[in-house]
C-alpha cells in the first residue's frame, strides 16, 4: 500500500521531472502523520492487553501459597485467621448450581433459536430476537433481585433459586449463538431431508441441529462460563454456605466460589484473603478452560 501521492507532472516547474522517490513535503507530512497514528493505535492495543496480563499475573502470583490439592478437597476453616483448608464447598456449589442452570436453559434456548431460524421473518420472531438482545444487557444484580422477589420469598435460599438466576443470565447468550450457528446450516441439507420425506421435527432434530452441533456446543459452553463466573445474583438467591450442600433446594443456601471470595475479601485476615486469591485462580481457570475448549470445538465445525 503506497503512502505517497503523485502530483501531475505539469504542475511542477517546466521541464523538471520529479522522481517518484522524492516525496513532496505534504506527502511526507501525511506519511509521518500516518506512522504516528499507527503508533498511537498500537498504544491503545497495549493499553487493552496490559490489564489482562496484570490480572492473570496477579492472580497466579498471589494465590501461590493457598492454592493446592488441599484447597480443592477441603472445606474452609471456620476462622478466617486460620490458614489451610479450601473452597471445596464453593467449587461444588458453583458446579452444581451452574450445572442445573445449564440443564434447564440449554434445551429452552436451543428451542427458541430453532423458532428464530425457522420462522425468522415474522414480526413475532423479530420481537423475540430484539428482546433477547436486550436481555443480554439486563444487569445480573437485577436478575438476582427479581428471582429473590419471585422465588426466594417462597422457597427460601438454595441451589435451585441460584440456578434459576444463572439460567436467566445464560439464556440469551445460548439463544443468540445457537441462532447464528443454525443460520449457517446450508439449506441443501434441510431440503435433502425434506426430499427424503422427513417431517419438520425430524429434519430439525436429526439433520439441522447435529450439523450445527459444534457451534451450538460452543455457544452453550460460553454461556456456562459466563454463568459460572457470575457472583452478584447469587448473593440474592443462593446466599452462601460454609459446608458442602447437596440439597437441591434446602432453604439454607448454597455456597459459590465467588461468594466465598466476597466474604474473604471483606475481612482483614491474611489467611482468608489468600484463600480468596486461590479461589480467584480456581474460578478464572474454570472459566478460561471452558472458553478455550469451546473455541477448539468451534474450530472443528464443518460448516
Amino acid at each position: 500500500m503506497s503512502t505517497d501521492t503523485l502530483e501531475p507532472t505539469s504542475s511542477g516547474p517546466a521541464g523538471s521531472q520529479r522522481s517518484l522517490y522524492e516525496l513532496e513535503p505534504t506527502a511526507r507530512r501525511r506519511r509521518i502523520k500516518s506512522r504516528v497514528m499507527a503508533m498511537v493505535l498500537l498504544g491503545a492495543v497495549i493499553g487493552g492487553v496490559v490489564p489482562l496480563v496484570i490480572i492473570l499475573w496477579q492472580v497466579v502470583v498471589n494465590s501461590g501459597e493457598a492454592f493446592g490439592w488441599s484447597f480443592l478437597t477441603e472445606v474452609e476453616p471456620l476462622s478466617y485467621r486460620e490458614a489451610g483448608g479450601g473452597y471445596l464447598h464453593g467449587i461444588w456449589g458453583t458446579v452444581y448450581t451452574t450445572g442445573i442452570a445449564a440443564l434447564m436453559v440449554i434445551p429452552l434456548g436451543i428451542a427458541a433459536a430453532v423458532y428464530l431460524v425457522e420462522e425468522g421473518g415474522t414480526w413475532f420472531a423479530r420481537v423475540v430476537r430484539f428482546f433477547t438482545d436486550v436481555m443480554t444487557g439486563v444487569p445480573s444484580i437485577f436478575v438476582g433481585l427479581a428471582v429473590y422477589a419471585i422465588l426466594v420469598t417462597r422457597l427460601r435460599f438454595g441451589t435451585f433459586t441460584g440456578a434459576v438466576a444463572l439460567g436467566i443470565i445464560m439464556l440469551p447468550i445460548i439463544v443468540r449463538t445457537a441462532e447464528e450457528m443454525l443460520h449457517q446450516v446450508p439449506p441443501d441439507l434441510r431440503n435433502a431431508s425434506f426430499g427424503l420425506g422427513a417431517r419438520r421435527w425430524q429434519t430439525t432434530l436429526k439433520v439441522v441441529i447435529p450439523a450445527a452441533g459444534p457451534g451450538i456446543i460452543t455457544g452453550c459452553m460460553l454461556a456456562i462460563a459466563r454463568g459460572a463466573g457470575e457472583t452478584a445474583p447469587l448473593i440474592l438467591t443462593a446466599l452462601g454456605a460454609r459446608t458442602v450442600v447437596m440439597a437441591f433446594q434446602g432453604g439454607n443456601g448454597q455456597a459459590d466460589i465467588g461468594l466465598l471470595m466476597t466474604d474473604g475479601l471483606r475481612q482483614p485476615f491474611d489467611a482468608g484473603i489468600e484463600r480468596a486469591w486461590a479461589g480467584g485462580l480456581t474460578l478464572i481457570s474454570l472459566v478460561l478452560i471452558l472458553t478455550i475448549v469451546a473455541r477448539l470445538i468451534n474450530k472443528r465445525s464443518q460448516i
Binding site: 489482562l52 490480572i55 492472580v59 460460553l222 462460563a225 459466563r226 459460572a228 463466573g229 457470575e230 457472583t231 452478584a232 466460589i257 465467588g258 471470595m261 466476597t262 475479601l265 480468596a276 486469591w277 480467584g280 474460578l283 478464572i284 472459566v287 478460561l288 472458553t291
Partner: peptide, 9 residues
C-alpha cells in the same frame, strides 16, 4: 470472560 469478582480482587 474474566469473572468480575476476580477483577474486583
Amino acid at each position: 470472560m474474566v469473572p468480575s469478582i476476580v477483577i474486583a480482587i
